[in-house]
Design a protein around this nucleic acid. Sequence first.
DNA 1: ACGAAACGAGAGCACTGCTCTTGCTTGCGA
DNA 2: TCGCAAGCAAGAGCAGTGCTCTCGTTTCGT
Lengths: 231, 231
Amino acid sequence: MTTVRGARARARIEITAAIKDEARTQLAAEGAAKLSLRAVARELGMVSSALYRYFPSRDDLLTALIVDAYDAVGAAAERASAEAEAERPLDRWTAVCRAVRAWALAHPHEYALIYGSPVPGYTAPQDTIAPAARVGLVLIDIVRGAHTGEGVALPPLPDALSPEAERISTDLVPDLPPALAVALVAAWAQLFGLVSFELFGQFQRVVEDRDPFFTAAARRLGQDVGLLPGG
Amino acid sequence: MTTVRGARARARIEITAAIKDEARTQLAAEGAAKLSLRAVARELGMVSSALYRYFPSRDDLLTALIVDAYDAVGAAAERASAEAEAERPLDRWTAVCRAVRAWALAHPHEYALIYGSPVPGYTAPQDTIAPAARVGLVLIDIVRGAHTGEGVALPPLPDALSPEAERISTDLVPDLPPALAVALVAAWAQLFGLVSFELFGQFQRVVEDRDPFFTAAARRLGQDVGLLPGG
DNA sequence: ACGAAACGAGAGCACTGCTCTTGCTTGCGA
DNA sequence: TCGCAAGCAAGAGCAGTGCTCTCGTTTCGT
């Protein structure tokens, strides 16, 4: 049997989920800094030491939440992409960007957990790298689907960038020209720059009506990666 | 006398500076999360309660460090802009972007403090808003200095964005066209998206040779705000 | 020269993450 | 079917945290 072994195993995954749920609740309420293992345990009616049977440390709990958060934004992006499948590539790109922003606004603390300052001197655990790539893959897919041979005139690559551009291209999108690969990675980072600035308060007293602003900026980003307004 | 009143006042500003210095050291070593008032006090040979004569709380100490950090990046950007004053606007823009990135790489924890996740539900103290604007002002200056009437063809503004574009323009750069103002704000946010992604590890296994990549992206950003490669 | 304000030291409170020990319960293998 | 190892919760405890309050001392303006 590959199914659950018994009552004990089932209980374990249920409790693990309950811990993550309660932790997520506290995260949403107070932020990552104030997430307290003892408070989680208290709320769940257990004693703090019992919690260490499920997560070896507070950081491991946080890592689990990080993975879940990456999966959540990734899923939101994938859903948006699927729903806009019939639309023109540039509209689809914009829809995905808007979905990412919407998820971020709905889950600010979880967003901060993954795109804010990571614990410094800390290298991302292996578990996080695959989920972290999901949004990027969605964007890649849209651009790849739209790339019809030699559509757009991309700015020429400076010589110093050529080797790196080749590397990025072969690693990520071997079927697209290197200049596009570079533009894509840059647009990906810039998208989260827009979201982060809005979420982290840098737009206070600068941008008031943020939805149209973001939409226009995201659309522009799409044009930067070769998606044409015409379709 | 408007000068220092006496030994006591002089001592106060010296001790305040010493506290900030030591705090900055700990920040650089371990990150904001592990910055401990008690450890700072210990290192300075005083008792923790004495420290509260200078900063009413840990958050106030952090706020002071935030202001200093904003001033530091701002100063770095201004310096770069001044040094590149003779160059073509696009090169000057790129130089400023590179200076921001260089400062961030040199002071990762301080960068994270200001452009990473701010304590959520938290609104920036009044003291931080002026220093926070410095980098943006430098960028504005370069673009304004380069704007010669009707140089570039900016993409048309969607209707939904027009009112907000007017607002941003009159607030920030009344002498430039609204479409340019919007592009400028977006480029500003996108610049920090690039820096943050590099610093926070999102480029791991994606971009290896980051200097030319960043330079090209920053240059592209400059073109997005109407700076021409030709000069 | 006096009194108020500023200051440093110390004790103490409530809280944190984490460890260790002590028993109870579960469930697998003999 | 039974026994024993593993899984588990509970409690006590340690070292550390931010912050408060009190108590003498020093400094400085009047």
